[in-house]
């Protein structure tokens, strides 16, 4: 009755392809402005920075032509710069470990379904993130300074002064405080997804609460631990405000060095090279951690970060 002729089939194909074309157009048209924006303001500046890092430095504000590896040589061979990098990485590791220690109980607490007033607790954990690094560090300065609240209290009860700021301790306190929420947020998901029926099963098999935790909950939350640690390490090592406010110049980390090189020395090539050395360090650390944990974890799915 309604036979399909060859012409009809062609018409079909044309109309069908029109819809496909429209879909393709939508996909590209919508995403184009954003893609262009990111390329222009992120990709190109970074690419340009790579080139800059390879240019010779002539004097403050003047950059020569041609390519050279001198900047990288300086960044990687100069003992002072290496020491700063070492301090940075050490800061990162200690901060990450501390955040893990402090963050896990909080994340565990928030992951339990029985916990009451979750809204308020979440607000407590998250609101510092939105207050801004400056204000948070300011609060610590007021607490930790030589004539700050803590020392004032110590003096009041007759224990004398303690140097809590402008040193490694102060910087660590600030960094841990700033990045703890990130660790908590990274851990909650994985801990929550540990099926409570597994725990019940373990208990019916005679395991005590403590054993259940160490044998079941903890191992299964390791992927969260890893992704949280990587995140915190990455952020800490890139941190500028915390170290400079709470450490002054007595604790020098690479971001501070970079800013100094750029602003005071106006040495763009070296600053750029140092930046990439830092980025490179982060990349290496992240790769190493994931490699190492791949070997450790067998039989546990790694959640995609």
């Amino acid at each position: 009755m309604l036979g399909l002729k060859k012409k009809d089939r062609l018409v079909e194909q044309i109309l069908a392809s029109r819809r496909v074309v429209f879909r393709c157009f939508c996909r590209y048209a919508l995403i184009l402005p954003v893609a262009v924006f990111i390329v222009v303001f992120l990709v190109i500046p970074y690419a340009n920075m790579v080139v800059t890092s390879l240019r010779p430095f002539l004097s403050a504000g003047r950059i020569g032509h041609g390519l050279t590896l001198a900047n990288y040589q300086k960044a990687l061979a100069d003992p002072y710069y290496l020491k700063v990098l070492g301090t940075t990485v050490l800061c990162g590791l200690i901060t990450t470990a501390t955040c893990l220690l402090l963050g896990y109980p909080i994340a565990h607490h928030l992951a339990q379904r029985e916990t009451k007033h979750k809204g308020i607790l979440y607000a407590i954990v998250l609101s510092p993130l939105l207050v801004g690094a400056v204000v948070r560090c300011y609060g610590w300065m007021l607490l930790l300074a030589d004539n700050g609240l803590i020392n004032s209290f110590l003096q009041y009860i007759g224990l004398g002064k303690a140097k809590l700021m402008y040193n490694f301790f102060g910087v660590l306190v600030g960094l841990v405080h700033i990045y703890l929420p990130f660790m908590v947020l990274s851990l909650i998901g994985p801990i929550q997804s540990v099926d409570p029926t597994w725990r019940s099963a373990a208990r019916t098999l005679g395991a005590s609460g403590k054993r259940v935790f160490w044998r079941i909950t903890f191992p299964l939350s390791i992927p969260g631990i890893i992704s949280g640690s990587v995140l915190v390490f990455l952020l800490t090592v890139s941190s500028y405000i915390g170290p400079i406010l709470l450490g002054g110049y007595s604790v020098m980390v690479t971001p501070m060095l970079i800013v100094q090189t750029i602003l005071s020395g106006v040495n763009y090539p070296l600053g750029a090279a140092l930046s990439f050395v830092l980025v490179g360090c982060i990349a290496i650390a992240v790769i190493l951690i994931f490699r190492a944990t791949d070997k450790l974890l067998k039989g546990v799915d790694i959640y995609e970060a």
Binding site: I44, N48, V237, I258
Partner: peptide
């Protein structure tokens, strides 16, 4: 990417 480093990249980009 670290905010500081993006700042550096953009600074160089804006200047040069």
């Amino acid at each position: 990417f670290p905010a500081v480093i993006t700042g550096v990249a953009l600074l160089i980009f804006y200047y040069r």
